[in-house]
Design a protein around this nucleic acid. Structure first.
Lengths: 267, 267
DNA sequence: CGAATATTTGAGGCCTATCAAAGTGAGTGG
DNA sequence: CCACTCACTTTGATAGGCCTCAAATATTCG
């Protein structure tokens, strides 16, 4: 009994934001739906990893997208702009995530994908991905799972954007990041935090100025400290409490019914 | 050349919120990924339609969900609550939509599904849906497409919640509803609008009082009129302009690359 | 070291929430 | 047919959270 396989990446080199830049470090690969044959087929289909600098647009709104982009190191985001120019980040992508899952089916993207740090990306040509989806049920199911998880995260973000105060939104985002990075422990956690305050604002629907004030307030409350591109969480339990954060929602492996797995636990 | 098949339902009886309560009126069925054999298999797997009254919870947060719920008539929503009790609607479901797509893979839901009007729902047992997904690539692809579309809509909602004024949010929501209901024309459109002002607030992250003021303002601007459970859009072009609404985003069929279809247009 | 980019701080104002109450309309029962 | 109730809409007054504009300080980078 090996326990539950991870859908989210669990490890993250703290200094370099580097993990093995390989399709084997993606959520697609790590999902527990894949057989060995499917893993092999996936690996054959992926292109070699490509390196991007920080703060670079990788795909722009209305671009044609012929590849799925699998983030294997670094932080990336997806955003769209309101008519007045306001920017809204709609997804934060860490190693293991697919930046443009919808490009599996849609030929144009309706958002911009941008690196937040230097990042490594593996491309999966859409034509090959589609062929794999038709041939291998496990791969099809893994894609579906990723899409469903995206929706679950989006739902939580909508709850934050619609019903939480600025204070609560920031606390909640920090809890989410700590959880998604797979950190263990609850006291004096330190994780990389490459987001600028303006980018935090773009995620949470706030201005950079107000983000600054709220971060200072959280610091004053002894909950966190952000400095030098790093986040220190003094007391994760207290932060969760302030955020109203339920740590279970991202560990969705727990909820995946055993019956839905291609590779049952019991032989 | 028959044009593009619909993923969204296009017709909607104005008085009764009724369409044929049948799996054939769902987005799953109407997607253009399905072969005849797949359609037949789907139809066999679905349960007979069941009728629900308005304002009833169908699944509650933390419930186990053994069925996928396909809305075939009426309006339904999905919502979650913040710790302080604030409610946030995360999806509006009209005939054709699946209320709990994530139940395909997760055994518990993290939200409540509630009817907004009397509604008819067809259930698809998860075990059968999973079997279909493994056996039929077109069905797998249709599920993936629905999940991806949900994410696309959620992204738009996040943009509204994060970066639009109350005035713009309401205008945008009304545009979305008109589009999703498949209305043609641009002048003096009348569609059913069963949402209470408090529910509009729960969708848009506003209070009912402020929703009321903004609706009155939109009315004063000669853009819309809401009365008697109906919405009248005087000038859809003007409303879209006020909302910064791009009508293309919901008609995602356009973007589905021909190569991704199971049933090509050209023989 | 200098320029550009982020963070921090302050003052003032607008948008939206909150609290409260009156008005409206549908449904019920006498 | 008319009280009566209940739920929703409308209106008003007030308060507060977040934004805007502006400038000083700190940090990064060439």
């Amino acid at each position: 009994m090996t326990g539950v396989t991870q859908l989210w990446p669990s490890r993250f080199d703290q200094n370099e934001f580097q993990i093995v830049p390989d399709i084997r470090n993606t959520g697609l690969w790590r999902s527990n739906f894949l057989t060995e044959a499917e893993r092999f087929a996936l690996e054959q289909a992926a292109t070699p990893p490509k390196r991007f600098e920080g703060h670079r647009d990788i795909i722009c709104e209305a671009d044609k997208a012929e590849n799925l982009l699998l983030v294997t190191s670094g932080w990336v985001c997806r955003y769209t702009c309101a008519p007045d120019g306001g920017r809204q980040v709609t997804a934060l992508l860490v190693p293991g995530d697919i930046a443009n899952l919808d490009s599996l089916l849609f030929s144009r993207v309706t958002y911009t994908v941008r690196t937040l740090t230097p990042a490594t990306i593996v491309a999966l040509p859409r034509s090959r991905a589609l062929a794999l989806v038709d041939e291998y049920p496990g791969i099809a199911r893994a894609f579906t799972a990723l899409a469903i998880i995206e929706t679950a995260i989006a739902s939580k973000w909508m709850l934050s954007l619609g019903r939480r105060s600025a204070h609560g939104r920031i606390a909640h985002l920090l809890c989410e990041i700590v959880t998604r990075l797979g950190v263990k422990g609850e006291k004096d956690i330190i994780v990389p935090f490459p987001l600028r305050q303006e980018q935090v604002g773009d995620v949470l629907g706030l201005t950079a100025v107000h983000v600054n004030r709220m971060i200072r307030q959280l610091r004053g409350e002894g909950l966190i400290d952000i400095s030098d591109r790093g986040l220190r969480v003094c007391d994760l339990v207290a932060l969760r409490h302030a955020a109203g954060f339920d740590p279970a929602y991202l560990q969705m492996n727990q909820y995946i019914d055993a019956a839905t797995r291609s590779t049952p636990d019991v032989a």
